[in-house]
Simulated scan of single mutants.
Amino acid sequence: MRLVLASASPSRRMILEAAGVEPVTHPADVDEEAIQASLAGAPPADVVAALAAAKAEVVAPSYPSDVVVGCDSMLLLDGQLQGKPHTVEATVERWRAQAGKTAELLTGHCIIHGEQRVVETRRTTVSFAEASENDIAAYARSGEPLECAGAFTLEALGGWFIDRIEGDPSSVIGLSLPLLRRALYGFGLDASSFWTR
C-alpha cells in the first residue's frame, strides 16, 4: 500500500519525506477558481475543504488500494481568503497588507482509502513580522512565496518574517501529520507501515 499525494507541492512532499514516507506524487487537475466561485459566501473552512476534496476525488480512482491525500491551503486575512499571489508585484502588495498582522492559515485535507474518507480543515494562527520594504521586495524577488498560500513559507526564507504560530506547524507548511495519522488510524492502518526508512 502506498500514500499518494494529489499535489505538486514540494513543501507537502518534503513533510512526508522528512516523516519517512516516499509518496507517489499525482498532481490533481481541478478548476480551483470555479470551485471557489460555486462556494461564494460559504465559510472559509468549507472552501478549503472542498478544494482539498476535489483534488483527492480526481486522483483516488487511479489508486483504489492506496491512501490518497488531497490538500489546499489559504490565508484568512481580515475576513478574506488569500491564495497564491503568483507574481512579484502581487506578493509585495500582500506583504504590505499582512506585515505586522495576525491571520489564520487554513489547510483543508481530504484523505481517501477505498470507501473511507476524512475531510477536515486545520486552522493555525500566524503572526507576521513588521518586515521592512527592502526585505519584502527581496523576498518577493526570490520567487519562493509566489506559489504559496498567503505569500509565505514557514520552513525557508519566509521563516525570517513569521514572529509566531499557534497550532500545527506541519499544517502551515501544507499537510498536517497529526491529522493524517488520526485518519490512518481511523482506517485501521499504522503510520509506520508507510515508512520507507
Results as ranks from 00 to 15, higher is better:
Arg2Pro: 01
Arg2Met: 10
Arg2Glu: 14
Leu5Lys: 03
Ala6Leu: 07
Ser11Arg: 15
Arg12Glu: 06
Arg13Ser: 13
Met14Ile: 02
Ile15Asp: 10
Ile15Leu: 13
Ile15Glu: 11
Ala18Gln: 15
Ala18Tyr: 07
Ala19Asn: 15
Gly20Asp: 14
Val21Cys: 11
Val24Phe: 12
Thr25Val: 15
His26Val: 08
Pro27Ala: 14
Pro27Met: 14
Ala28Asp: 13
Asp29Met: 04
Ala34Tyr: 09
Ile35Trp: 04
Ile35Gln: 05
Gln36Ile: 00
Ala40Ile: 00
Pro44Asn: 11
Ala45Ile: 03
Ala45Leu: 06
Val47Met: 10
Ala50Phe: 11
Leu51Tyr: 10
Ala52Ile: 00
Ala54Gln: 08
Val58Glu: 15
Val59Ala: 13
Tyr63Glu: 08
Tyr63Gly: 01
Tyr63Ala: 03
Pro64Ala: 12
Ser65Ile: 02
Val69Met: 05
Gly70Ile: 00
Gly70Lys: 00
Asp72Cys: 00
Asp72Tyr: 01
Ser73Gly: 06
Leu76Gly: 04
Leu77His: 15
Leu77Cys: 09
Asp78Met: 03
Gly79Thr: 02
Gly79Ala: 06
Gln82Tyr: 15
Lys84Asp: 14
Pro85Asn: 12
Thr87Arg: 08
Thr87Lys: 08
Val92Gly: 05
Trp95Gln: 06
Arg96Phe: 13
Arg96Trp: 14
Ala97Ile: 00
Ala99Glu: 10
Ala99Trp: 04
Ala103Arg: 02
Thr107Cys: 00
Gly108Ser: 09
Arg117Gly: 02
Val118Pro: 00
Val118Ser: 04
Thr121Ser: 06
Thr121Asn: 05
Arg122Asn: 04
Arg122Thr: 03
Thr124Gln: 02
Val126Lys: 11
Ser127Arg: 15
Phe128Trp: 07
Ser132Arg: 10
Ser132Gln: 12
Glu133Trp: 02
Glu133Arg: 03
Asn134Gly: 11
Ala138Trp: 12
Tyr139Arg: 02
Tyr139Phe: 14
Arg141Gly: 05
Ser142Ile: 04
Gly143Tyr: 14
Gly143Asn: 11
Gly143Glu: 13
Leu146Ile: 01
Leu146Cys: 03
Ala151Arg: 07
Thr153Leu: 06
Leu154Ser: 07
Glu155Leu: 04
Glu155Ala: 08
Glu155His: 07
Leu157His: 14
Leu157Thr: 08
Gly158His: 12
Gly159Phe: 14
Phe161Trp: 15
Asp163Ala: 10
Asp163Val: 05
Glu166Asp: 15
Asp168Leu: 00
Ser170Tyr: 11
Ser171Thr: 00
Ser171Gln: 05
Gly174His: 06
Gly174Ala: 06
Ser176Asn: 06
Pro178Arg: 03
Pro178Gly: 07
Arg182Thr: 05
Arg182Val: 01
Arg182Asn: 14
Gly186Asn: 11
Gly186Asp: 13
Gly188Ala: 09
Gly188Arg: 09
Ser193Leu: 08
Thr196Tyr: 14
Arg197Gln: 13
